[in-house]
């Protein structure tokens, strides 16, 4: 057994191929933040309660703090950095700004990732479905309403832009 536990992480992150030799035995969250310096994915609790570390693994939302890093080998990972840029915001991001759904910002990346997962499955959610969709994400500032309205607004915009209801994420 290699005491250094060096492993080869080969995967796709935000649409780009990644191949690097790093220490194994850690969480996907540590790989993203410490090795790739993708620090948009946050650690709020480290125990799967707060949802701040939500990323998409092969198109499904998962918690990076409970995922062994090696699980992601050969997979496609989408983080907040792959969703939109300051000059080219995803409609969910733009709507959260518009509705005032961003305060301290620590929960925001996870909220966006959960919202994307929800809208991918359900392009026209009711308020109750939005609440359920982000129920794995805690926010301490906003009281949630502005986040919920933001997601609702984004859903309407995405629906208008793609009447067939086939909403695709900006990456993948």
């Amino acid at each position: 057994m290699d005491e250094n536990n060096l492993i080869k992480m080969e995967l796709t992150v935000n649409g780009e191929a990644v191949s690097m030799i790093v220490k194994g035995g850690r969480r996907l969250l540590d790989f993203l933040r410490d090795d790739l310096h993708l620090t948009g994915t946050k650690e709020g609790c480290g125990e799967g309660e707060c949802g701040s570390c939500t990323v998409h693994l092969d198109g499904q939302s998962v918690l990076a703090c409970l995922t062994p890093m090696e699980r992601a080998i050969g997979c496609s990972v989408l983080t907040i950095e792959g969703v939109g840029s300051p000059t080219n915001l995803h409609p969910v991001q733009a709507a959260l700004l518009d509705e005032g759904g961003v305060q301290c910002g620590m929960c925001t990346p996870g909220m966006v990732m959960s919202a994307l997962d929800l809208l991918e499955r359900n392009p026209d959610p009711t308020i109750e479905e939005i609440i359920e969709g982000i129920s794995g994400n805690l926010c301490r500032c906003t009281g949630y309403k502005k986040i919920i309205y933001g997601i609702q607004q984004a859903a309407q915009e995405l629906q208008a832009a793609s009447p067939a209801g086939t909403v695709k994420e900006s990456v993948e």
């Binding site: 969703v83 300051p86 915001l89 959260l96 961003v102 620590m106």
Partner: peptide, 23 residues
């Protein structure tokens, strides 16, 4: 009036740097 928070664009794109993000 509804004004945009100065720091909200970096926050919503994951670019805002918090203490634990420093390296």
């Amino acid at each position: 009036k509804s004004v945009l928070r100065k720091d909200s664009v970096p926050k919503v794109t994951g670019k805002a740097i918090y203490t634990g993000d420093l390296h």
